[in-house]
Every structure is written in structure tokens, then in C-alpha cells.
């Protein structure tokens, strides 16, 4: 554990809690992509199955349980409790275009051919692109609520901080995992446009709207 990894995790946790807070407080999931949330739930479920097979630390297990619970909770709020507020007309990205390639790639580029390892690799690849339906939705509606922007910023920062963590781990532990690094870089690049808008608009007190 290093400072970049810890900040990354906390940023990830903040993002997930911000989203739940937004939905609960406004009693609405307007502007939030249910497809992205579904993809994240698939990601956590595929990756954290290792809760049953290996123990790393209390910190790790607790975080995994929180991420899983929060993602299923978000789905419950979006598709059940506040379903009438879900803006599905604008949430039209085809997620099979993300799931199928991620699945195929996880059979091609993987460290070890075991079920758990392929599921873990699939989760890494799928996570890299899981935000696309949400970004597509923002581009379709042309705007995002400020709290949604904060959510996206925290979520994007998490993997960017992980990249710093991997650089740090490379120099201090000689640790290098190209699967997570390449996927993490793709994931962070997808947020670049959004980061730019966030810094130039939201941080100056303006609402995020596209030109």
C-alpha cells in the first residue's frame, strides 16, 4: 500500500458514495446511465469473487464488500425504487459492444487459464470501458448536474491515481502487470475530455454543458 493507491481507493469510494447520495437526496437518477452502473456491477461481481477464495487484508475485504453492496444498491435505486426518474431514452449505448470484446480479449490476453483468472481479467478490461455509456449519455443530453460531474471526476481520478501507484510499485517493488496498466491507461484516457470540461467549467462554478 502506498499513498497513490490509498488516494485512488478513497477517490473510488467517494465516487460510489457520491452517486448513492445524489440519487437518494434528489430522489432521482436523472442523468445517470443505468447501463454504466450495470457494467460496474458486473465488473465488481466478476473481480471480487475472490472474496471466497483468497484473503489479502481486512482493508481489502471490507472495500470489496462496500463496492459490491453499493453497486447493487445503486442498481436497486435506479431500476426499482426510482425507476420512473431513469432517463432510458438517452441511455442508448449498446453494452454488448463492450461486453463481448472484453470477454474475447480476456481469453486471448490473460496471465493464467483458470476460471477465476479469466473472470478477473474480464473485469479489468470491462472496467476500462464501462464509463462509455455514461459519457455517451452526457454527450447526448449535452449537460450534467454538478454532483454528477463531481462523481465522474472522482471516478476518473481513481484510475489515474492507480497509474501513479503502478509507477511507484515498479520502482519500489519491481512490480509490473501490463494487463492492469494498459487497461488503466485506456480507462483514464476516456476521461480526458471530461477532465478538461470539469476543470474549465465546473471548478469555476459553472454547470457542465457541452458547446
Amino acid at each position: 500500500m502506498n499513498i497513490f493507491r490509498l488516494c485512488g481507493d478513497l477517490s473510488h469510494l467517494l465516487a460510489i458514495l457520491l452517486l448513492l447520495f445524489k440519487i437518494w437526496k434528489t430522489r432521482s437518477c436523472a442523468g445517470i446511465s443505468g447501463k454504466t452502473q450495470l457494467l460496474f456491477t458486473i465488473v465488481y461481481t466478476a473481480r471480487y469473487l475472490d472474496l471466497f477464495t483468497s484473503f489479502v487484508s481486512v482493508y481489502n475485504s471490507v472495500m470489496k464488500i462496500v463496492f459490491l453492496t453499493a453497486s447493487y444498491g445503486t442498481l436497486y435505486l435506479m431500476f426499482y425504487k426510482f425507476k420512473p426518474t431513469y432517463d432510458h431514452n438517452h441511455d442508448s449505448f449498446r453494452i454488448l459492444y463492450l461486453i463481448v470484446p472484453a470477454l474475447v480479449l480476456s481469453f486471448i490476453i490473460v496471465h493464467v487459464y483458470t476460471v477465476m483468472e479469466i473472470l478477473w481479467t474480464f473485469s479489468i478490461y470491462l472496467e476500462a470501458v464501462a464509463i462509455m455509456p455514461q459519457l455517451f449519455m452526457v454527450s447526448r443530453t449535452g449537460e450534467a448536474e454538478t454532483i454528477t460531474s463531481h462523481y465522474l471526476f472522482a471516478l476518473g481520478s481513481y484510475r489515474a491515481l492507480y497509474i501513479l501507484n503502478w509507477i511507484y510499485r515498479y520502482y519500489t517493488e519491481d512490480f509490473l502487470d501490463w494487463i492492469t496498466i494498459m487497461a488503466g491507461i485506456v480507462q483514464t484516457i476516456l476521461y480526458c475530455d471530461f477532465f478538461y470540461l470539469y476543470i474549465t467549467k465546473v471548478l469555476k462554478g459553472k454547470r457542465l454543458s457541452l458547446p
Partner: peptide
Amino acid sequence: VKSDEAHDEL
């Protein structure tokens, strides 16, 4: 690189 090492990350 053994993939196990990566699994200590979230």
C-alpha cells in the same frame, strides 16, 4: 509477473 500480486489491488 505472477498475476496473484495484482490481486492485492481493488
